[in-house]
Design a protein around this nucleic acid. Structure first.
Lengths: 381, 381
DNA sequence: CTGAAAGCGCTTACAG
DNA sequence: CTGAAAGCGCTTACAG
């Protein structure tokens, strides 16, 4: 590997001259000829700066850490790309750390980030596992933390999608289309009270329901005991959140798929099912295809995230799309501000998502009778 | 940030003592008490080594670069996780670089890797874009390159799945089940002759067909002109590779989906369609759902990769699964050997994939008449 | 068993 | 306009 010293020796210049010219700091007055020679020779010799040496000497790495969870969810993947681009646009480099690649150990990841001397950390789309204590480990050594689409943590800024309003809008839309018995599948997680993105989904759904009817929640077992006869009587809208115990499901046992296998064997079906995201909604649709339950003819479905697979007309998934570019721009702006001013307090910001109405919600229902029996044959996806 | 010097001052020891104890090199004889004090104080003060300083002083980064393309394909994602784990198991750290995150610029990625002074580079699941010249840029500065599931490049080792045998086996299986007119959808890429993973798919399919019948290839336009009447006459097996011009399709215009929209409007349908991978096969199935073409009742389908979505009984995708753990272990072993011995020549190695037979290939057909008309009603997915 | 010293590749304030 | 020198945080051969 070529060093600045080697360039200096070759050109019989001092190391400082080479270093100054290569670093292109403004305000330096070197002879144009000297500049040319140095730049030309550096390129010829294939000089590449040694990042580690720069970091040691400058006492800053110019690195922003991006902690993410791989690309299981398309929207998260897109967001990560946008974050990386925005970080670079501001003159930083990034160190991307995939939690999966580290066996999911947060402590391990934090040590990596500190050892790399990152100047700030963006926590992208990570829920429970990233706790306040982890934020503290970073802030204690002067590394500010911004969470994007994750959980509120004291000491960390949070920038996120307004998932409450999105689920409220999805709920309202289903009601408006004439659906009356609406299920909401909800993945239970440990500390429910502090879980923003999952909690807000529930609150948004519930608020839409309670504008027009009654809302209850059940565990999976309770639900199958109560459904459909033991439900509280209501002439109008009835919303049921079914809390799925995620401890029961490994990732291989697709929880929504498993639930639907059981639900689709029972009768009657609910009018509509609100899923946590598009991946879950596709699980439901796959279960429906298998068991002859048609979406939306037999049951309407909504997702969240606007995954590509939902675009196929065969699925036609009604969903909502985050404003990824604004969210990511705000996130990177925030981490830069907090790097620049270590005493700047963390802030919160959220951005509305955009509804994407396709056929899975049973769009055509609106114009028709609200009685399921009479619409089944005419509504098609 | 805490430095070794600060620990030394706090304990009134020399910097060398602290450094030696923290580095835990074998063969050093320090008083147990001194060791304890140093370790305890380091932990208390929250000492974390400065990686950059270590890299500068040791003149090696202990880093292996992993260049990948995000996680669009599940199998590639799994492989990347396995690579990372294997790299760590051998005492290296890794620097993961997602080509997407760098806007797809190979040169930019290579500069990053060199500036980080990685000791070796693994190119994971990247096809055309990574060329011989890129391998040369790395080897010229002493960084060995191992390609995993990508293309053969002079100067780079290659470890890959035996995709030839897999497609041969898929083809044979379809023939054995009684399918006679078999389509193979093939994404055309620039330098066909040097593209291993796509080229071997074609060769494997073709060899299976030619064992029992006749093989031809068409562009998409030629195909729709010729299908079905202009095909060469053959009493038995007829294999057609349809070369899709990928320049025509952005990622948004799903190429297999678009092709199927057109194909499913024509008639008759082929007996079976061999897709490049599971993602393509799902595109086909989605088009089928939309246009009332049933898999496998109306047309059989195979994929490749064993994506999770193919597991749903509604899709029941027949596919093949790479031996990811062996491939990745061999890849990491190879890069370590080449780092240890810079003169070691690059080598090639491939591992067989495992067929996964589900329903989409029309399994039940084998026991029945080979006439499509009579089997349609009894075969179900 | 412990410490003084050199040096990795770079940056930067300062002298000439 | 150019160069000599100090020093970032660490490692390591060597002296005591």
């Amino acid at each position: 590997m070529i060093t600045q010293r080697q360039i200096a020796e070759r050109l019989e210049l001092s190391l400082a001259t080479v270093a100054n010219i290569l670093s292109e700091r403004p305000g330096l007055r070197y002879a144009a000829a000297t500049r040319e020679r140095v730049l030309k020779t550096a390129a010829e010799m294939g000089y590449q700066p040694n990042r580690a040496a720069q970091t040691v000497r400058r006492r800053r790495s110019n690195l922003i850490g991006i902690v993410h969870f791989g690309a299981g969810i398309e929207a998260a993947h897109k967001a990560n790309l946008a974050l990386a681009a925005d970080v670079c646009a501001r003159g930083y480099d990034y160190l991307a750390v995939d939690m999966n690649w580290h066996g999911g150990s947060v402590e391990r990841v934090i040590d990596e980030l500190i050892q790399a001397r990152v100047e700030g950390v963006i926590i992208s789309h990570i829920q429970e596992v990233f706790q306040k204590e982890h934020v503290d480990m970073l802030t204690r050594v002067g590394i500010p933390v911004v969470v994007v689409n994750g959980e509120r943590r004291s000491g960390a800024s949070i920038i996120c999608d307004d998932v409450y309003s999105a689920f409220q809008a999805l709920g309202r839309h289903l009601i408006q289309l004439g659906h009356r018995r609406i299920l909401h599948l909800w993945p239970a997680v440990d500390r429910l009270e502090e879980n923003r993105s999952i909690g807000e989904r529930l609150k948004g759904f519930r608020s839409a329901i309670e504008e027009r009817g009654k809302w209850v929640s059940f565990s999976e077992e309770e639900f199958f005991t109560a459904w459909p006869d033991q439900l509280p009587a209501t002439g109008g809208v009835m919303g049921v959140t079914v809390i799925q115990d995620m401890e029961k499901y490994s990732t291989l046992n697709k929880p929504v798929y498993s639930f639907c296998e059981r639900l689709f064997a029972a009768s009657p079906l609910p009018d509509a099912i609100v899923c946590t995201n598009d991946v879950s909604a596709i699980e439901l649709i796959a279960a429906g295809l298998e068991h002859g339950v048609r979406v939306p003819a037999d049951v309407a479905v909504t997702g969240y995230d606007n995954d590509r697979i939902g675009e196929y007309p065969a699925f036609g998934l009604t969903t909502a799309e985050q404003d990824i570019s604004r969210i990511c721009a705000a996130t990177v702006a925030e981490i830069c501000l907090r790097i620049a001013d270590p005493h700047r307090p963390p802030r919160q910001q959220s951005f509305p998502s955009r509804l994407i109405l396709r056929t899975s919600c049973g769009m055509a229902l609106a114009a028709q009778s609200r009685s399921k029996a009479t619409t089944t044959d005419t509504v098609r996806s």
